[in-house]
């Protein structure tokens, strides 16, 4: 028995060595670049650190100031929530509609699928933000088209604070392709015989969509909704490029991440920005938790 214990100890140790050897890069990354910074950022959020002098402990002052005395925070929240609550449902509805249309056994599926996917592949780049800036400018493509087609002289959609955010929503919806691909894959998983059974039962296409397709697709809808919402909360590049990093005009595109960026990297209020970062993390976490709780009531799982 002592022999055996020694043997298995040795065998285990052998794997320990190899295991930690292979895991080492990840482990270093986890400890140094994730765990450490998470703790540090929480600590910083309770200080007034500015990068110049040592951090002074201020307790929850940053948080109370954010909650009670920061109009730009309120603006950023409003802008971000408006963006999330508009862009995600629109994007998903559009993606689902196109996916359902594509799933009807049309030839050319792979062509359309690829073409529709392209915008979401490149949509996050600076180039597309630049393009958007031109398209919705006063003398931009959209107004040219409106002029040619209807003789309508449009305003600068970008410079107008009441419309600027909607150009960004549009940009997000334009990138519906990856959600569509996931919907398509989900639609393909629904067994055809269910539809055949429903047809025999006399269910019309519209009824089939609402009574069969949609319920069976809820796990995929849920997945897409969570992923896209988290992504929308984190949106940054397009707003930054289109507003020249200001979040303007008059803070109408001040995404939360943009505000965070300004506080941290133009005003060097690291402590305050850390508190902002934690609030964002908590919002995303709360939103995710809420989705999961609600999922019990509307997501249909087979198993």
């Amino acid at each position: 028995m002592p022999n055996a214990a020694a043997a298995s100890a040795r065998a285990v140790q052998g794997d320990d060595l190899a295991g930690y050897g292979f895991l080492l890069p990840w482990l270093l990354g986890f400890l140094l670049l994730t765990l450490g910074p998470v703790a540090a950022s929480f600590y910083l959020s309770l200080t007034d650190y500015s990068g110049l002098s040592a951090p002074n402990w201020v307790g929850i002052e940053n948080y109370t100031r954010i909650a009670t005395d920061d109009p730009r925070f309120i603006t950023a929240m409003t802008v971000t929530f408006t963006f999330v609550l508009l862009s995600v449902p629109l994007k998903l509805i559009f993606a689902l509609g196109v996916a359902v249309a594509l799933n009807k056994g049309l030839t050319g599926l792979s062509f359309f699928r690829a073409v529709f996917y392209l915008p979401s592949l490149i949509g996050g780049s600076v180039a597309i933000a630049v393009l958007w800036r031109q398209v919705f400018a006063g003398d931009g493509l959209l107004n040219q088209a409106l002029h040619t087609l209807f003789g309508y002289e449009g305003p600068s959609w970008i410079a107008n604070p009441s419309t600027s955010l909607y150009t960004l929503v549009l940009l997000a919806v334009w990138q519906f392709g990856s959600s569509m691909i996931i919907f398509l894959a989900g639609l393909r998983q629904i067994p055809q015989d269910i539809y055949e059974a429903a047809s025999i039962d006399g269910a019309q296409p519209v009824r089939q969509f609402f009574k069969i397709t949609l319920p069976l697709l809820t796990p995929v809808i849920f997945f897409n909704a969570v992923i896209q919402t988290i992504d929308a909360f984190k949106a940054f590049t397009s707003a930054f490029v289109i507003s020249d990093g200001t979040g303007g005009p008059i803070d109408s595109t001040l995404f939360y991440t943009l505000y965070l960026y300004q506080e941290a990297f133009t005003n060097f209020r690291f402590g305050y920005a850390s508190a902002l970062a934690w609030i964002l993390v908590l919002i995303i976490a709360a939103f995710t938790a809420l989705s999961f709780l609600s999922a019990r009531y509307w997501v249909h799982y087979d198993d």
């Binding site: 285990v12 794997d15 320990d16 190899a18 295991g19 930690y20 292979f22 895991l23 990840w26 482990l27 986890f30 670049l33 994730t34 450490g36 910074p37 998470v38 540090a40 950022s41 910083l44 988290i230 909360f233 984190k234 991440t257 965070l260 941290a264 690291f270 920005a273 850390s274 970062a277 934690w278 964002l280 993390v281 995303i284 995710t288």
Partner: peptide, 28 residues
């Protein structure tokens, strides 16, 4: 590979999957 602590580290890895990078941005 079977090594001690594997399950724990794997859970940690899953935990970081959804962590927004904003949580680590400033200290990094």
């Amino acid at each position: 590979l079977r090594f001690r602590g594997r399950g724990f580290w794997f859970a940690m890895m899953l935990g970081t999957l959804m962590l927004p990078q904003h949580a680590v941005l400033i200290p990094q």
